[in-house]
Design a protein around this nucleic acid. Structure first.
Lengths: 349, 349
DNA sequence: CTGAAAGCGCTTACAG
DNA sequence: CTGAAAGCGCTTACAG
């Protein structure tokens, strides 16, 4: 029992975890060198890097995110703010972003704003307390306070879904207005004249699509405010069915009937298609129907739904990649990335 | 310029953050007392609590999660493992859980397993490095290694979707087998005899529903292995349409035709309903169709889809509440909570 | 019921 | 290119 080693310290709070110090001891260097070698920061002698990496692997060393965050004032989290998970659009966006960020060592922290600027601001405040390394937010419209919070935090931020030319703003998206205009031109080209625009939720991007529709209708000399059906309720199949019933039932004596409806989102259009089926309204013979986002199931509808395919997985991936660059301190080749859209013409129009 | 205050320390890394020490100074107590007063841990003189809270409010103090995690070896994260976000079922579950956990100060860390036990194990390893305060996992089936990781971590864990009687296992769910049996009994009661069970993805819960169907079919003396259509592909409307076409086209000479199809999930059943419409197959006259989970849109289908409503928001909320209790060190009244299900009979059956 | 000391496991800021 | 010291902002473990 000749205890040559010193007695364990009285106030031990040892966690059993392999630490940087353990790796440093095995590699016979200082902890700082281990830290630098493992993070690839600053030049370290290649031979030492090798030795450190071997030691780390041998011990199964895993950095402690909390210690790292406390010391560096920056966590390994990326905060993502999206309006809802009920719209498949955002689910795809999120999955793609996560798929890019996770291999790079970042955890995703999701905040659901329910399309509410107040909730968005509150969520952002909470997330900023975790000192995220990066930020992914939906769209460009938000409260002045939220915008100021983002700027003041100094956290790299990329905006999703829309594009912006404002200095210092990074964005990956598409022109919602052009997409709305393109669909309207398609319906006009098919000979439709009384094209209604039907929208729910009325978020900023929906209103941009509305602007595109309005521009083309005015250009064609066919605009009529009575063709705008704007409904602040959340978007859903049931809501789309209700709106279709209303629009189809609305037959003013002094105007020709609606011959096409452009819905701002596919779930509404799918509901409309089902309502038309129930009511015996022939699509597209009597009324053409078009949607937006080309969501799951749209190609299965009867008739299949004409829509605008938006590159949501690509947006999620590209935005995450731009953010990774910003977090490394790089300047992206272009601050704004327009990923475009595709018109998908199917049987409903 | 009579600088009576000492020069600022040379090696300042001040963050400008309001710290526990600032609050302690203003309240004229020690930092430990502030820590205890704010967390409600251990008895502290009520008068002091008051003083501390006032001081904290006055300074706008917000605890630093990283420092807290490092010192306590437990973060404010709850890790959630779900198979996919493409099934609306899990979106609802997640939203409900988050809605309960966030007000209690917990951030949700989402891991998507893609129904893969290997991915689940890897995700769990990553998440455990963040020392989550709690764990929410889907179902009871997982690799032995994953199970061992959970146990060894000592992190409180609640299982979603199914219920278990195993000691030390906490769960909130429903009997998938009973739900499958109930739907089958309903179809039998309607006079259906050749009831097919059509499934995709083939995850554990789907197989439990299959077992319920099989039990009732055997009991009724009507079971036939040829009625089982098991497809490992991911579940979707398009896949449901394909399966319906196959099943409808399969007309062996020696057996009566299928007169009902019980799909393991509503998206498949919705796709089948649309395929029936395209093919001119009368539902329910010729074939009854039933689904599972009562997802969005099922009530809008033509005809409306018969389904099983599963209490997913309730499950998410109840599981989160049980977890909050466990994280506080409490023992839940019952380790297993069965929230049941409702048969929703609509026009398709 | 309250507190002084130590420690959690990293990185920053200097210095050489 | 490398390292000794200090510090990030909390909580734990003791002691009284």
């Amino acid at each position: 029992m000749s205890a040559s080693s010193p007695a364990p310290p009285l106030r031990s709070r040892a966690t059993g975890r392999v630490t940087l110090a353990d790796v440093a001891r095995l590699a016979e260097v200082s902890p700082i060198t281990v830290s630098r070698a493992l993070r690839g920061e600053r030049a370290v002698d290649p031979a030492l890097i090798e030795r450190v990496k071997d030691a780390a692997a041998k011990l199964g060393y895993v950095p402690d995110p909390a210690a790292r965050a406390l010391a560096s004032q920056r966590s390994s989290h990326v905060a993502v703010l999206i309006p809802a998970l009920s719209n498949a659009l955002f689910v795809d966006l999120l999955e793609a972003a996560q798929r890019t960020l996770r291999p790079a060592g970042y955890q995703t922290l999701i905040g659901i704003t329910h399309y509410d600027p107040i909730e968005e601001e509150q969520l952002l405040r909470e997330q900023l307390q975790h000192r995220p390394a990066g930020l992914l937010v939906t769209g460009l419209d938000r409260s002045e306070a939220t915008r100021a919070l983002i700027t003041a935090s100094g956290v790299p931020c990329v905006h999703l879904m829309e594009t912006s030319d404002a200095p210092g703003v990074y964005s990956v998206g598409l022109s919602q207005e052009e997409a709305g205009a393109a669909m309207t031109r398609h319906l006009l080209a098919r000979g439709r004249r009384r094209i209604a625009f039907a929208a729910a939720q009325l978020d900023p991007r929906t209103l941009q699509r509305l602007a595109g529709w309005r521009r083309e209708m005015v250009n064609a000399g066919l605009h009529d405010p009575a063709l705008e059906w704007l409904n602040p309720a959340p978007s859903s199949l049931a809501e789309g069915a209700r709106m279709f019933e209303q629009i189809a039932a609305h037959r003013p004596a002094d105007k020709p009937p609606v011959d096409a409806i452009f819905f701002c989102n596919d779930d509404l259009a799918q509901g409309a298609l089902l309502a038309a089926l129930r009511l015996g309204v022939a699509v597209p013979a009597q009324i053409a129907i078009a949607g937006f986002n080309d969501l799951t199931g749209s190609d299965q509808m009867v008739p299949p739904l004409t829509s605008v395919r938006t590159p949501r997985s690509e947006m999620g991936r590209a935005a995450a990649q731009m953010l990774l660059g910003l977090m490394r301190g790089e300047t992206p080749p272009a601050p704004s990335l327009d990923l475009g859209f595709d018109l998908v013409v199917r049987g409903s129009s």
